[in-house]
């Protein structure tokens, strides 16, 4: 399970390493982050944190439910 998580993390990093230089070519989307006092950077940071914690909690909840079900089934 952890192995697959680490593999996934490396896959995401690999994709990011390829995508970010392309994205960083000073296109219109990126320039908007400099507007209005760079407030979009703060929004981006908040969104990353919320999505990160939400995904983690969601997966953890699913895993716990699965194990609880297994234990429950074994008892019966």
């Amino acid at each position: 399970m952890i192995k697959s998580t680490v593999v996934k993390a490396f896959q995401v990093m690999l994709v990011m390493m390829i995508v970010t230089p392309l994205w960083a070519q000073g296109n219109g989307l990126e320039n908007t982050f400099f507007e209005s006092g760079k407030i979009k950077v703060v929004m981006g940071v908040a969104v990353i944190i919320f999505i990160g914690i939400a995904i983690y909690l969601f997966r953890l909840d699913k895993k716990i439910s699965k194990l609880e079900k297994e234990i429950h089934d074994e008892k019966n």
């Binding site: 940071v45 990353i48 914690i53």
Partner: peptide, 17 residues
Amino acid sequence: LFCILGLITGSLWARFT
């Protein structure tokens, strides 16, 4: 988890400052 979040958010912050 918090380390990863800190790294990604720090990277984004660094990009625009």
